[in-house]
């Protein structure tokens, strides 16, 4: 998994996704970045690659829908990661 460069052209054996981080997940990381991944990468792999523990994951969404850690990411997906937070 590597950051996608603006001029970079995805090779046939990689997909590009957008990763968005929220709340304290942004601390020391980023708010929104594009990443290149091998095809058939699941959410779990991306989360671990970013240095998170699975236990600190509150909400995982792919394209605005709740996703399981096993869900495979597709070209152009947006993966959003939130810690357990709430309001009301």
């Amino acid at each position: 998994m590597r950051k996608s460069t603006p001029s970079g052209i995805s090779s046939v054996d990689s997909i590009t996704i957008t990763i968005k981080l929220f709340a304290h997940f942004r601390n020391g990381r980023f708010k929104e970045e594009k990443y290149e991944l091998p095809p058939s990468t699941d959410c779990r792999t991306v989360i671990l690659s970013l240095g998170f523990r699975l236990g600190e994951m509150g909400i995982v969404m792919v394209n605005g829908e709740h996703a399981s850690l096993d869900q495979l990411l597709q070209e152009g997906n947006t993966l959003a990661l939130f810690p357990l937070v709430g309001g009301g």
């Binding site: 929220f22 709340a23 304290h24 969404m61 605005g64 810690p83 937070v85 309001g87």
Partner: peptide, 24 residues
């Protein structure tokens, strides 16, 4: 609990803007 013990004290209820936006 992470919501009452950490999330709400740090960000208040307004943390929900980005979550609800993401969820449509």
């Amino acid at each position: 609990h992470p919501v009452s013990g950490q999330g709400l004290p740090t960000y208040g209820t307004n943390i929900l803007v980005n979550i609800l936006n993401e969820a449509g």
